[in-house]
Write a protein that binds this DNA or RNA. Structure first.
Lengths: 223, 223
DNA sequence: GCAAAAGTGTTTTCAATACACCCATGG
DNA sequence: CCATGGGTGTATTGAAAACACTTTTGC
């Protein structure tokens, strides 16, 4: 190949939309820009790609460095190559979608006072830097296709969960509502979960049963 | 950003798996490598990405230049960034999936005797250069998810088609068989196609009816 | 005891499946 | 007239949808 010349030099970055569910609300993790351009706007975690690392390593490292999140379930979504997507020089971005459970979501690094991060509900995204709003949208679309997969869902709920919780996650991501009885009937019928015989006390109303996913469930699509 | 330094310099290429259906067989377009490395092996069409073009423009141009194919339905699939995927220097590849109908598929450029291209059935792929076999696999998986979409299917059959033809395409890509009567019932029931009142003569057996897609059909998923 | 949210069962409806015979063409 | 492949209709099955009342907790 003769592509190792000046006009073929490109710069890449990885970006990630991390999802979690916080008290029943599906949220994404954003970082506040403290320098121009787009000072005060919000942005996705991510980093420039060095030529000795893979995109997957890069985004995993960036995530740990910027948010302290470890062992995050990630999937590659899309590569954005519009010439004007970055305001300065031309940078290509590969976006990822990530999921953390609500417990891991709170363990964020506090030793970086210059990194301000915050969880935002997916239908209440603040003003975003660069093309990051379009990136989030694309990644939400990706999640929409993936959430029907049992492993993707499991990333939200690695340990105990209630059926109403899971139903709410589906309803927010898929943008439609389900009948509680039919949802339960279908979900339990799939034989993927088991009752922990514990209850989700401390909330209004009758406490919901706590379930957990069985070990070694096979990869299937629900819905 | 401070990423515009030597260690952040990356080289990219686009690759595309073009699908078509030829006498009922789903095939992909490959190009024979005539120089080392991998001389005699087959490879996907594609090209290095200059820093003043988008991936989509790049792959469209490369396709026209290398195969003469124009107005191809394309969708981005995946970006491969393994350090050793290209045998020489490190090159990142973004793969696309493309579809052409059987009529357009034969119009290939003959003025490039040094480019040898050939259509191969998807279950009879020859020995591939670099990681292109893995790329094809990933792109076939992508097509598998996309073929249920009416617009993707339409790219295979922009004009007349028969129901047995479409059924065979589904069967090959999804890897399962359908009952002829049930397939027809469902497909016709979707109200997406209209009878052209012509027949597919010249083949063995009773000639199949020719249909065409209606104008302005809304984007839906079948199956 | 009242509000809030969760658990439970039955009926209906519609789509998916299974299945067998006849029809139109080429040779 | 025979081989080949395409077109058609019906009965069955199963999953999705619709729907109302009771139960458990917090306050």
């Amino acid at each position: 190949m003769d592509i190792f010349t000046k006009e073929y030099i490109n710069y890449l970055e990885s970006l990630i939309t991390i999802f979690t569910v916080d008290k029943g609300i599906v949220k994404v993790l954003l970082i506040r820009k403290q320098t121009d351009p787009y000072k005060g706007y919000w942005s996705l975690p991510g980093d420039g790609l060095k030529n000795n690392e893979t995109l997957e390593n890069n985004i995993t490292d960036a995530l740990l460095d910027q948010t302290g999140l470890l062992n995050v379930y990630i999937e590659q979504c899309y590569t954005f190559s519009a010439l004007n997507r970055n305001s300065e020089e031309r940078v290509i971005a590969t976006s990822f979608m990530g999921i953390v459970d609500s417990v891991s979501a709170v363990i964020k690094r506090q030793d970086r006072p210059n990194i301000i991060s915050e969880w935002f509900p997916i239908n209440d995204i603040p003003k975003m830097a660069y093309d990051h709003e379009a990136v989030i949208k694309k990644n939400i679309e990706f999640l929409k296709r993936k959430i029907v997969n049992i492993n993707t869902l499991k990333a939200f709920f690695p340990s105990d969960f209630t059926l109403p919780e899971i139903q709410k996650v589906y309803e927010q991501i898929l943008g439609k509502t389900f009948d509680r009885r039919n949802f339960r009937k279908k979900f339990v019928g799939l034989n993927l979960i088991e009752d922990t015989n514990e209850k989700n006390i401390g909330f209004n109303g009758r406490p919901a049963k706590l379930y957990k996913f069985k070990e070694n469930i096979k990869q299937i699509d629900l819905f």
